[in-house]
Amino acid sequence: MSNANSPNESADSESTTPAVPRLNPILTIAVCVSGFVLPGLGHILMGRWIRGVLLALAIGLMFLFGIAMQGELYVSDLSQTPLRLFGFFADIGVGLMYWLAEHSKLGVGNMSARTYDYGTTYLWVCGLLNYLAVLDAFDIARGRKP
């Protein structure tokens, strides 16, 4: 005679569920910071090679296209209109590439170029996409996602 609600059965079903590995908080922070600094690096450090490389390619290419289309990288200049801070927040999401471009005098922006608006939007969006990629890395590190 078998009982469907027996404790043994529920314990068996739990043991057959594949456990999602979970990193400790310090490693989770390290993964998120590395993913923020270099897009995709957080996924690569957790062994998600393909996902990490594809994220790095997509976000990196978007940044390069934005620079090549003479888009503008916003800087944290509080003397300008406060709304530009939103653009600055979006731009810095791409991490190290923002810093490198800023120090290389790239991303100055040429408003007379036909692709200026597209280029600036590319630069915003690649930063915002990297924020999403960091959140995805956080979820994986905490075991919320396989």
Partner: peptide, 29 residues
């Protein structure tokens, strides 16, 4: 780089859809 509006739109759509697909779904398919 001097892309047309449609080319810029298509490249934008390709790159954003790549990231959206990667971070919102679980299996490669």
């Amino acid at each position: 780089m001097n892309l047309s509006h449609f080319e810029a739109l298509a490249v934008f759509a390709l790159l954003v859809s790549t990231v959206f697909g990667l971070i919102t779904k679980k299996t490669p398919r």
